[in-house]
């Protein structure tokens, strides 16, 4: 483990010598509860002024119907952290009338995006979503831009990456699956983002009252420039707003006490 960390530091230093984008050095520090995740990232945190891609499970028909859920939560939490550290707002771009155009502000507030940190742009089509994202990424006053476009391709990704570097704003392309994996229109194609995450729901741990425990997400770092893929199970507590590593379930089974209800 310590070797690995040492290696990460070296990589970081090399990148710095290579001289990347303007703000290449800036990263979003992750809370200590997410130390393993930070450790997997060569930058020691999430690099700012980059484009990141977060996808759900393209095979899950539920996500096709409801849009990405766990992935949305994960993205929103990261963006909220950015917004908080920069004291700036997040622009969220969606396609009008699509399944994504159902953002519910009280719920997003729970994820750390209170009203004064959130703007929503509803575009007519994917092209407009990408345009709005680009406008946002070029606006240094923002903390982050989240976009949900299905038709993003390599070119689009590159444009966004350039805009992010120019404006110093971090971008997230968020997509659920639904159609053929990796096929065009799935929103999960490679867009040359700096990182690519896959976040899908995981069963939550049982609780001591007849109810439902904190949400758990299975998070996979699928692609990471200069890093290696990794996987974790994270737990998000919607009462406290904390995100942390989930305590492993024994044998992966639900070791629940006898349920009284539901």
């Amino acid at each position: 483990m310590s070797d690995r960390r040492h290696l990460d530091r070296l990589r970081r230093r090399i990148r710095a010598i290579e001289g990347g984008a303007r703000e290449d050095g800036a990263v979003l520090a992750l809370p200590s509860a997410l130390a393993p995740v930070a450790g997997a990232l060569p930058w020691g945190g999430l690099p700012l002024a980059h484009l990141h891609q977060v996808v759900g499970d393209p095979l899950d028909p539920a996500e096709a119907a409801t849009g990405p859920a766990a992935a949305l939560g994960f993205t929103a939490l990261l963006a909220a952290r950015l917004a908080a550290s920069k004291g700036a707002a997040v622009l969220w771009c969606v396609r009008r009338g699509s399944v994504d155009d159902t953002l519910y502000a009280p719920g997003l507030a729970r994820l750390g995006l209170p009203p004064d940190r959130l703007m929503i742009a509803r575009a007519a089509d994917d092209a407009e979503v990408l345009w709005a994202m680009e406008e946002g990424l070029r606006c240094p006053a923002l903390a982050a831009v989240i976009g949900q476009a299905r038709d993003a391709d390599l070119t689009a990704g590159r444009r966004l990456q350039l805009a992010a570097e120019a404006g110093g704003v971090t971008g997230f392309l968020l997509a659920a699956g639904g159609r053929a994996p990796g096929g065009k229109g799935a929103g999960t194609t490679s867009v040359a983002a700096t990182t690519r995450w896959r976040v899908v729901p995981a069963p939550s741990a049982p609780v001591g009252w007849p109810g439902i425990g904190p949400a758990r997400w299975s998070v996979t770092l699928e692609r990471c420039r200069g890093g290696l893929p990794a996987h974790w199970t994270l737990e998000w507590n919607d009462e406290t707003g904390d995100l942390g590593m989930a305590a492993p379930l024994r044998d992966g089974s639900l070791d629940a006490p006898e349920r009284r209800r539901a």
Partner: peptide, 17 residues
């Protein structure tokens, strides 16, 4: 930025909840 977005997307489509 908001003004630019509104001009293209329309007033109703740039929201601050």
């Amino acid at each position: 930025l908001l003004d630019r977005l509104r001009t293209r997307l329309g007033e109703a489509n740039v929201l601050r909840p």
